[in-house]
Write a protein that binds this DNA or RNA. Structure first.
Lengths: 181, 181
DNA sequence: CTATAAAGCTAACCGCATTAGCTAGGAGGG
DNA sequence: CCCTCCTAGCTAATGCGGTTAGCTTTATAG
């Protein structure tokens, strides 16, 4: 019988597939192993345990999100840049709700670098808007809070009424942009 | 040996204590039973299963939060009311971070009523500020998103830098209040 | 004083994470 | 071409948490 040829990266790939298709409940080592065509304990050759797998997933997702944000910022500056970043972030959440939900965690060890890059994107957008230092720190928090909160509420079904959530988000984005110091 | 004299309410009380002191990981039927001085399966006489216990916890927390908001709104109107509501909400999250984290869920059956009351508080604040109908719906979403996002980021350690988060929150609140239609 | 509904208990099962220790594929050196 | 060694993978086993079934006991109503 040929080997499966796994690796930590491959395990994360499989786990992300599972996450996207069946949600966070389904993210179990047994399920990942099954989908990878391997017995459960074999995963431990590539990943220390479930907790570490989750960290690796977070790192991957933070990277994707940061890349989206950086792309949105390309060639834009000022309010336009901030607006594009906010919308790019929210679009990602809508495309991969489970992936995003699996990310929101404390900045434990191993996550610091990826988290820094992600926050850096917000910081960069605000710098091009003319904010620096303490002002930028506070503003970054506001941007992150708004977009994170909106994404969570939207994808977890918190918006029951028929009003279009696109409109709600546009309002939120403009409120924040116009309110920046 | 005398009976423990449990009830669904009492089970929720015990569970909340556990949640507050040891976080969401520790919220296990075994732990609740132990703290209540009862064998694990005995809990099933009061609660259908763990999922239902979590729903009951959510209902309780939503109620507490709604009560806080209603109290903050008493005797205030317009921007003042909205500001007081936002701060009251955030204060609750800081006082009971685990409790709040355990609440954020989809509006499944049994939660609808409590969720409605909670959303109603936001709606009321906005009405006194002069918003109605569709405008109020969009604005409610913005308020909830901002305060939820900020609370989650703040309590999960997302704000690493030394800048005071009180200041950040005040900025967010004012940005939103000034940006209301 | 007794009958009954409810509260509690023990025993047992299942799924999942994790560990220990064995087996075998396959690459590198002789 | 064969031997050796590393390591991916396997099986077996443990422990914990949730859940179910079925028995026992308490307390209360009649």
């Amino acid at each position: 019988m040929p080997r499966a040829g796994l690796s930590a990266e491959a395990v994360v790939d499989v786990a992300l597939g599972l996450l996207d298709e069946q949600g966070p409940e389904a993210l179990t080592l047994a399920a990942v192993a099954g989908r990878a065509g391997v017995a459960t304990p074999s995963l431990y050759k590539h990943v220390r345990n479930l907790a570490e797998l989750k960290v690796l997933i977070s790192v991957r997702v933070m990277g994707e999100l940061a890349a989206r944000g950086e792309a949105a910022l390309l060639g834009r500056s000022g309010d336009d840049g901030v607006r594009a970043l906010l919308h790019a972030y929210r679009d990602y959440i809508r495309e991969h709700p489970h992936r995003y939900a699996a990310m929101a965690q404390q900045p434990g060890p191993g996550l610091a670098e990826a988290a820094e890059r992600l926050v850096g994107v917000f910081y960069a957008a605000l710098r091009s808007r003319g904010l620096e230092g303490s002002d930028a720190v506070h503003a970054t928090r506001c941007l992150r809070a708004a977009v994170h909160g909106f994404g969570v509420l939207e994808t977890s079904g918190g918006f029951g009424l028929p009003e279009k959530s696109d409109e709600s988000f546009a309002l939120l984005a403009e409120m924040i942009i116009n309110g920046l110091p």
